[in-house]
């Protein structure tokens, strides 16, 4: 039996990801080939089961949706052509939109900082991203030696590149929000 809340979750996922979750017959081929399955709290196919049951809260709070590396191994092998990475994207987007704070917050924070960096400069600046991430999530001494080595090799630049037309980029971000 699929109840109303499950129906609406299924419909939202289908609309956002273009994937038909009901086609999943839980053969678990995706789980076997997933490089990060051993670190997930819910295996990829079980995410589909939870969607079918409408157990939205559990899904949106799971580590799985943030740990999927979008490697597309599952999508390549699934006998029913389900592109799970797209489903995981849709779930992350819903989690952010609804303000759900689940597991793997650092991953979510990193993605957020990455996007706000683009909004600010039009380009991603590695040193700024790492600095902002450390300010938000701690771990100040992590990778310090590596960072110094990379700086010496000329691989990290302290000054951030910026596109000429930053106003345009900001406008684009605002428009995107309005469209969504």
């Amino acid at each position: 039996m699929i109840d109303e809340s499950a129906k609406s979750l299924l419909a939202t996922i289908r609309e956002k990801s273009g994937q038909d979750i009901l086609a999943c017959y839980h053969c678990q081929k995706c789980v076997v080939g997933c490089p990060v399955a051993e670190f997930m709290d819910v295996p990829p196919n079980a995410i589909h089961r939870l969607i079918q049951y409408g157990r939205k809260d559990e899904i949106l709070k799971s580590a799985t949706i943030w740990l999927c590396a979008a490697c597309e191994t599952c999508g390549t092998r699934c006998p029913n052509d389900i592109d799970i990475a797209r489903v995981m994207d849709a779930l992350k987007q819903i989690a952010v939109k609804e303000g759900v704070k689940g597991k793997e917050r650092d991953v979510a924070v990193m993605h957020g900082l990455f996007m706000s960096g683009i909004r600010k400069r039009g380009r991603m600046h590695e040193v700024s991203l790492i600095r902002d991430l450390k300010l938000r999530t701690g771990g100040f001494f992590k990778d310090i030696r590596l960072g110094i080595k990379m700086f010496r090799l000329g691989k990290l630049s302290l000054s951030a590149e910026c596109v000429k037309n930053v106003k345009d980029i900001k406008q684009m971000f605002d428009r995107a929000k309005a469209i969504e």
């Binding site: 979008a70 994207d89 849709a90 992350k92 957020g112 996007m115 039009g122 380009r123 995107a176 969504e180």
Partner: peptide, 19 residues
């Protein structure tokens, strides 16, 4: 000229439109 960041994995993780 004046190319911008493609958004990489953060784009498709967070933003349905900007990705």
């Amino acid at each position: 000229p004046d190319w911008i960041c493609c958004g990489a994995s953060s784009g498709h993780s967070l933003d349905e439109v900007l990705n």
